[in-house]
Write a protein that binds this DNA or RNA. Structure first.
Lengths: 109, 109
DNA sequence: CTGTATCCAAGACGATACTG
DNA sequence: CAGTATCGTCTTGGATACAG
């Protein structure tokens, strides 16, 4: 892997864009939960206690825009919305798993 | 991989701490440069154009604290400081490489 | 050359209340 | 149940000037 010769701006560094996204406060928690199976929003809110409605929505919307999760509305009373990993989202999980393994071995604190 | 049963706070999620760190504006750029071999600060500053002295120092100090890079002072005039990946830093590179590969394949924009 | 010190702007994140 | 709307705070990152 040769040395970069000139400015590698943020726009030219997909890696940074990805890591920046994944570094979001609730992102990896949401992805890990959905990796275990689809969940309704309420369930997500309970499992990921601490995330305010606003942050949860924000996180979910971003992940949806990035095509990492899908959002399915089930009409009725009460309304229900189901979130699930997309194929693309699933393909990202091994990367996160690698990060997790390294982190648990090397990040004492 | 079973579903988490209760609050997974930030403190309990090493993965998030790692991703948060790596998501820093200049972190992955610095690591990638050093992965190609040790560099003096001035060289780093040139290669990673755009990073102000303050940000460069901040990034390097953080990486040093995390034992991902080493800092070696060579006395003399002018003074020279060499930065290099530590073994721990090297061990992280495959994880970053995996992220890079995924990002380049899936992150169109 | 290798940093430090200020100051400042923008964004991330959170608390709280409210709507269909 | 599934969000939206406000508002405030804290953190990140950048511009600039200066020091050993």
């Amino acid at each position: 892997m040769g040395r970069t010769k000139y400015l590698a701006s943020m726009a030219e560094c997909p890696t940074h864009r990805l890591l920046q996204r994944l570094g979001g406060r609730w992102v990896c928690l949401v992805l890990k939960e959905l990796a275990a199976g689809p969940l309704h929003r309420g369930e997500l809110g309970r499992v990921i206690a601490g995330a305010t409605p606003k942050m949860l929505t924000e996180t979910l919307r971003t992940l949806e825009r990035d095509d990492l999760i899908s959002r399915t509305v089930h009409e009725g009373v009460p309304p229900r919305v189901e979130y699930a990993l997309t194929p693309r989202g699933s393909s990202l999980m091994p990367v996160i798993a690698a990060a997790t393994e390294w982190a648990e071995r090397n990040l004492t604190r």
